[in-house]
Design a protein around this nucleic acid. Sequence first.
DNA 1: TCTGTTGTCAACCATTTGGTTGAGAACAGG
DNA 2: CCTGTTCTCAACCAAATGGTTGACAACAGA
Lengths: 128, 128
Amino acid sequence: MAKTEAADPLSRVFSALSDPIRRDMVSRLAGADATVNELAEPYRVSVQAVSKHLKVLEGAGLVSRSRDAQRRPVHLEADVFDLMTKWIERYRRQAEDRYRRLDDLLESMSDDVEQTHPTSHPATGAQT
Amino acid sequence: MAKTEAADPLSRVFSALSDPIRRDMVSRLAGADATVNELAEPYRVSVQAVSKHLKVLEGAGLVSRSRDAQRRPVHLEADVFDLMTKWIERYRRQAEDRYRRLDDLLESMSDDVEQTHPTSHPATGAQT
DNA sequence: TCTGTTGTCAACCATTTGGTTGAGAACAGG
DNA sequence: CCTGTTCTCAACCAAATGGTTGACAACAGA
């Protein structure tokens, strides 16, 4: 289930980067654009397999392809990283805030005995 | 292919977050710890399915579970986010540097005609 | 025009994934 | 001790994933 074509952008990006080969291709493309054959060379898989991987990366918006005769130079689109970074940062910050709040609570409990309702925050909100 | 158990940590984290339900659970756990039933409540899937999702998140190190009688409170482990963030930042920065270098090149080409071997960088290096 | 290079598409296959149901373990509270 | 709640495990299923091979389109160069 979860058809790749229908999946939301964030899912596609995370999914695309969940494969080591694809991650390695991204890391190499960060250095320089490359053709499919160049990309395929280090791996022990067929060019066709690499072509498929590229289709996944392209579907996630991580990569774009131009034309140069029979070549299809592959180019890294760094912008999409922001999607992930924003998602990650949001929840990391949220989690850290929570730890801070917990620290504060523990702190206040040690030098103050005045806590009437210790855990009354509904908090959360949870929109993906 | 690509057995989840054998996969590298980064692959497991990205893979874990490639599912919308799992991402939503993470976002809710950032607000507060929760039991399996509490986590399952908003979704139209069985508790067993959620249990499986949690196993994936746990396998990725994103989540830990303690005991409280028959409850298994789930707790978000924010540290693992750093793994991803570092990976992402590395290649985003690299890509941005490259654009800057390209800008510099284009700049120098417009007011200087002295380029002897335009594309001599072996560059890349590619370690995931 | 013929040949080699580069890349995609299609069909196929094994494994993984995400879901289901059914059974049962572990515990709390009558 | 019985009952209900919480949760996991096992078996099963359909669809997605990642790989293969074979065919072929598109182009460069001889």
